[in-house]
């Protein structure tokens, strides 16, 4: 299957898996916003009554992440081998910091996802407060607050979201280019879309640990 062996085939797979993850991130962000309306427990409860959706999503996302990461490592190693010597003077006209650090922001995000799942999905990290709320639902809100009150954890989230911002600032426009959906007119627009979306993600996701840590969200 040339999709998984060719230079462009693998990029197409990365673009598609990346796009799936972006869609998930959008959904995740919208779900997260229920926390500000104190509706996150209800939201979580509802999700748990839709096991097909939850598990379908977990399987697809799990596969997407694994494929995306494996190809990313493979492609990056190939690329480094194709450029064995760097220039004495390092100067770029167009290439961005975000673009050049994709592998690192990606790996940070990968590690973050593992931690994040251990923390809030599998719930095995230290210091978690696991209890039921007044309506006898699992109290997601208290669990989250119990974590983000810890400065180090809140900071870790901010850093990870910084990684997400950089990764998607380059990644979103890159997706359209790789899938061949881009042209001279659309490329700058995709670039702008990428910047806007990744900024929204950054602000939206960082808002929770920050507001909780500073006691704004109680």
């Amino acid at each position: 299957m040339r999709l998984f062996s060719d230079s462009i085939g693998r990029k197409v797979v990365m673009a598609i898996t990346g796009l799936l993850m972006v869609l998930f991130v959008i959904g995740h962000l919208l779900g997260n916003f229920s926390i500000f309306a104190h509706g996150i427990n209800a939201y979580a409860e509802k999700l748990h009554h839709l096991p097909a959706l939850v598990w379908g999503n977990r399987v697809v996302m799990g596969l997407a992440v694994i494929v995306h990461v494996i190809l990313a490592i493979q492609v990056t190693m190939e690329n480094q081998a194709a450029k064995p010597t760097k220039y004495k003077v390092e100067r770029y006209l167009k290439a961005t910091f975000a673009g050049r650090t994709m592998i690192w922001t990606g790996l940070i995000l990968g590690a973050f996802i593992v931690y994040h799942l251990l923390q809030f999905t599998i719930r095995k990290t230290p210091g978690l407060v696991l209890e039921q709320d007044a309506l006898n639902r699992f109290d997601v809100f208290t669990m989250v607050v119990s974590q983000f009150k810890v400065g180090l954890i809140a900071l870790l989230y901010v850093v990870a979201m910084g990684g997400l911002f950089l990764h998607l600032k380059h990644g979103i426009q890159s997706t359209f280019q790789t899938l061949g959906l881009s042209n001279g007119v659309m490329l700058p627009r995709y670039g702008a879309l990428g910047k806007v979306l990744s900024s929204v993600f950054l602000v939206g996701f960082v808002a929770i640990p920050v507001t909780i840590f500073f006691g704004i969200l109680k």
Binding site: N79, A82, G99, S174, T178
Partner: peptide, 12 residues
């Protein structure tokens, strides 16, 4: 040759 990671340094 390597793979494309859409830096667009080539065009520049």
């Amino acid at each position: 040759f390597g793979n494309c990671t859409n830096h667009y340094e080539c065009q520049a």
